[in-house]
């Protein structure tokens, strides 16, 4: 997070992480499509010729609060391919929140796990602790055959810490919900640490509501957040995370 008091400007870094071809860029594209043009900048993709992310994608979103505080969300994806390890480490540095995009296909289970370990390592290399990182997990590609069942995911998600969302990013299903979930966790964590609401006369709930609306979702925030199939949406304080 970067805070510019004089410009009343707050910049938050959100990162989409996950194994190769799990749909991180597709999530960003769906988000970009859903977003009101007044809020979203151009989606920048640095990709190779075969549409694989080379360095990262970057979607800038800007929201102005009634308090006058301008919140700039910089949403990144990392390149999923194993060989881009150093790039992932660079992109994830300074992240305020992470959405882990898992591939629902049973055959990808190991790759998901490997990528999660990779995330943990790369956060550690940047002096960040996974346990304290606002993090949601999205199971993407729910429309494919041979995917892990809803029941299995729900049962396991209920035992886990991270909120879990189901998605079909190509259709935009679950994309905004996952994003709002991540933003909610991230904002709550930043607010707990920096007391932003008080400092700026900021209204978190109204802010999340506004973001959701500008992303084309008019439902009450609690209903959107309620789409997660397990995990906790409460923020862990650093002490509780140990």
């Amino acid at each position: 997070m970067q805070l510019d008091f004089s410009a009343r400007e707050l910049t938050i870094k959100l990162v989409y992480y996950g194994p190769a071809l799990s749909g991180k860029t597709t999530n960003l594209q769906s988000l970009h499509k859903a977003a009101d043009p007044s809020a979203a900048g151009r989606l920048m993709t640095l990709e190779t010729r075969d549409d694989r992310t080379l360095f990262f994608d970057l979607l800038p979103l800007t929201f102005k609060d009634r308090s006058g505080l301008s919140v700039r969300l910089k949403v990144f994806t990392v390149p999923g391919q194993v060989i881009h390890a150093s790039t992932r480490r660079l992109v994830v540095q300074g992240a305020d929140g992470v959405a882990f995009i898992a591939d629902s296909q049973i055959a990808e289970t190991q790759n998901n796990a490997d990528s999660f370990m990779d995330l943990k390592e790369n956060l550690k290399a940047n002096g960040l602790n996974l346990k304290q990182m606002p993090l949601i997990i999205q199971f993407n590609k729910r429309d494919l055959l041979d995917v892990r069942s809803d029941a299995e995911i729900a049962e396991l998600a209920a035992q886990g810490r991270e909120p879990v969302y189901l998605a079909v990013a190509t259709r935009g299903d679950g994309v905004v919900e996952s994003f709002v979930g991540m933003l909610h966790l991230t904002w709550s964590a930043l607010n707990a640490e920096h007391d932003l609401n008080k400092k700026f006369g900021f209204d978190s709930d109204a802010f999340i509501k506004r973001v959701a609306t500008q992303l084309g979702d008019d439902r009450p925030v609690q209903e959107i957040l309620g789409q997660c199939v397990g995990g906790a949406l409460d923020v862990l304080t650093p002490e509780a995370a140990g």
């Binding site: 700039r72 910089k74 480490r89 660079l90 290399a125 002096g127």
Partner: peptide, 18 residues
């Protein structure tokens, strides 16, 4: 690790910084 932070400075400034 400080070295990772050092090398990423330009990138950081260009995306989330000034």
């Amino acid at each position: 690790m400080t070295s990772a932070a050092e090398t990423g400075l330009g990138f950081d400034e260009l995306t989330v910084g000034k």
